[in-house]
Design a protein around this nucleic acid. Sequence first.
DNA 1: TTAATTTGCTTAATCGTTTAAGCGAAAAAG
DNA 2: CTTTTTCGCTTAAACGATTAAGCAAATTAA
Lengths: 336, 336
Amino acid sequence: MGNRVRIKDIAAKVGVSTALVSYVLNGKEKEKRVGNELVKKIREAAAELNYQPNQIARSLRNGSTKTIGLIVADIAIPFFGQLARVIEDEAAKNGYTLILGSSDEDANKQNLLIDTLSHRQVDGLIIVPADGTSDQIAKLVKRGMPIVLMDRYFPELNVSHVCLNNYQASYDAVRHLITKGFQRIGMIAYQSGMIHMRERIGGYREAMEAGNFSKYIKIIEVPYHFTRIQTERAIEQFLSDNNEIDALLFATNSLTTAGLNFINKKGIKVPDQMGIVGYDGNEAFDFFYAPITIVEQPLNEIGTKSANALMDLINDPAKIIKYDLSHFLNIRNSSS
Amino acid sequence: MGNRVRIKDIAAKVGVSTALVSYVLNGKEKEKRVGNELVKKIREAAAELNYQPNQIARSLRNGSTKTIGLIVADIAIPFFGQLARVIEDEAAKNGYTLILGSSDEDANKQNLLIDTLSHRQVDGLIIVPADGTSDQIAKLVKRGMPIVLMDRYFPELNVSHVCLNNYQASYDAVRHLITKGFQRIGMIAYQSGMIHMRERIGGYREAMEAGNFSKYIKIIEVPYHFTRIQTERAIEQFLSDNNEIDALLFATNSLTTAGLNFINKKGIKVPDQMGIVGYDGNEAFDFFYAPITIVEQPLNEIGTKSANALMDLINDPAKIIKYDLSHFLNIRNSSS
DNA sequence: TTAATTTGCTTAATCGTTTAAGCGAAAAAG
DNA sequence: CTTTTTCGCTTAAACGATTAAGCAAATTAA
């Protein structure tokens, strides 16, 4: 703490100015033509005193913290945890460190996090934006903050993003179910105006129409909180309708989990009584008696592309990049 | 970026010194007796210019970054993701922000992370220490860095920690299996000198001895990498022995997952042919045809206690706290 | 009326780095 | 032998905030 060694201490020990020490420790001894003898002495003194550079001071002076902020919905959700890990590694390769925040899909929390992180002078932000936060993002961009949106984006904003091609993913999932003979396919999604959810729903809808099953289109959107109970209610509602459903497309991992639990409880057999396709892999779905067919997202690609898009943006504010990546439909027993 | 507003700009706009602005924005206008008129003007100017404090400059001056470093084995593992989330929230309540790192249970990576984070002047560290890093921790402590070890600790060091009472947890799990009539209970653990693993193994061993089943004690320790294949080999080895086993205790979540996959593949029936108890809950284990009995750790308690222990330590370096928390044995079909 | 105190502000140092500018001395060029 | 260039180093400002110290002016006390 108080005994921290500063450049000044090394300078004093060797008997030179702090400038020389800084040059040497930053590897600029050639460029700044520091004498060979002193280079050695400075290196030795730094090692001997166990000098640890103060990145805060350096950040203040350089105007760059080599830090990137990551705002996800909830780091406890494996999908985001895995993305965080990929981003962490990719950032580290380039000398960046991660500062973390979870928004709980809440606009106010997200706003607080953005403030906290930008006060900490992060060089850029990777954000999984919450519903209705287009203004927050727009304001940030106008202030000149490098931003990459991940998992979702705002079509009205010209901001970098790395997402799944959600429309295509849902479309393919439904096509697959139809191919397997399912017709009365229902969908359970989150109540959200965000594009990723609208596209997942849109893909479902259009695939149903393309299959001439418009009359069987049934979508229930549940709120983000109390997912479990709301999902149960949604399924109950599906079941109590005259036109029973014979398959379900779940728009996220947690909806799938909640749904399967309930389907199990009700004794509904998968896939005989109900075909199932979910989003985002999970070990849980491998252990289900009928392993679950999954729309898999390319996590590594999303993470690395997000990190690199941000670092590119930091170096060149004009470099706006938009990715809509492809899914992989991992077909298993639950849908055949 | 370049258009950032500084205290100096507010001072210029109002026509006062930067000192006054700082006093007002920090709520010290009474203490420092700033005139009411100016207080209002300064507040207005700050709002009008949309002043955003520079936490880096403040950190440098104050010698505190209001930042805590969190080093886990892998943030992509839900167990650590959930802990991170709890810590994030608890830290945020006290104005602290999280900086994140994953060590992969690797001493070198951990060392790099510790350097990176301490260069960034984190006020303290919460570490899930990798095997063989006692020296790293000791050195940090000697340097005066506030540290809380989580999930595991080093008995030889007088450092704060928040862990499970792993001995008791394994002991209870084995007692439970014995009660249910299992006798030839094997254990699959990680190859690790870390106390948490030694205690989990120790608890197993002593419960077996207490049940007069010493002769059935069989432990295989698999390396951290290539868990999947190594776990399969371990189970094969158990099965090929003369004394077949009738139950398995898995020392972690990922071992359980790997093990169940293989047991499934081999067509072994749980619990009739093999009783199972694992560590750390996971949705996956609810969906297994025989839901898995689990040693559940009190994640919220571990996280909040770790965060608070660290913040206490930051405020009072003498306040060393050690918790060994209790598990909850969630008994389900896999063991009865 | 003078001295002491209070009020309300400014000045300037400081945190630990980085780096442009400058300055003798030595070496090279004329 | 003088001038120019190169070499090897130091000085000091800057990043943006905080805060101890100081200083007039106004107020109160003596």
